[in-house]
């Protein structure tokens, strides 16, 4: 799964045709083989864009940031990202006609040790559900599988479930980073 070249071409064309002001994609982080999101405003920078199975972060999160608010944005979304983007559209947080969406028929992403993510193994919507252009061969929807951990948790009693969550949240430092890096937690408090 490497769409780097295609995405670079699409982005430069979009800038050249004056269809977007900002492009949100991925680039290398500059020190190892992992990637970081990048917000591009200068057409000269599109050569830095990449997309591989290491493109993990959900870019629809950037639609609530200063750089993109009110602007025409091009962005890359995988199946899962496109679903959060779809929700933002449904809830009128972004305007569809301001977006140029490159959808990916995703084959699953990997974590920084190179192992396929657990959520990707259970993914039921690998193809982008909202897009202007699709890269890769769509695989279609899969049947819904209930996660084994959730089945196990649901079978527990109230007290045990509480214990389980207390155990998990024992490590929480209350930085609220989860809220800020969630694309759907867009309310401004």
């Amino acid at each position: 799964m490497d769409y780097s070249k295609q995405i670079q071409d699409i982005a430069s064309k979009l800038f050249a045709d004056d269809k977007i002001d900002v492009f949100v994609g991925y680039c290398m982080n500059g020190f190892d083989d992992n990637q970081v999101p990048v917000v591009i405003t200068d057409p000269k920078e599109v050569q830095a864009l990449v997309f591989t199975e290491k493109s993990v972060f959900n870019l629809s999160n950037y639609l609530k940031a200063d750089h993109t608010r009110g602007k025409r944005v091009g962005l890359v979304v995988k199946g899962c990202d496109s679903r959060s983007l779809n929700l933002l559209l449904t809830e009128n947080q972004v305007k569809r006609d301001k977006l140029y969406i490159i959808g990916i028929a995703c084959e699953g992403v990997v974590d920084d040790r190179g192992q396929k993510m657990q959520n990707c193994m259970e993914c039921i919507v690998p193809d982008a559900v909202v897009f202007d252009e699709m890269l890769g061969t769509p695989k279609g929807k899969k049947d819904y599988i209930v996660n084994a951990d959730i089945t196990e948790l649901a079978a527990k009693g109230l007290v045990e479930r509480r214990e389980y969550f207390e155990e998990i949240f024992d490590n929480c430092i209350r930085c609220n980073a989860c809220r800020h890096s969630c694309p759907l937690c867009y309310d401004r408090l």
Partner: peptide, 13 residues
């Protein structure tokens, strides 16, 4: 800092 998501976790740790 363009791609910062202002999550503040840097300050907390």
């Amino acid at each position: 800092t363009r791609n910062c998501v202002s999550c503040n976790t840097c300050a907390f740790i």
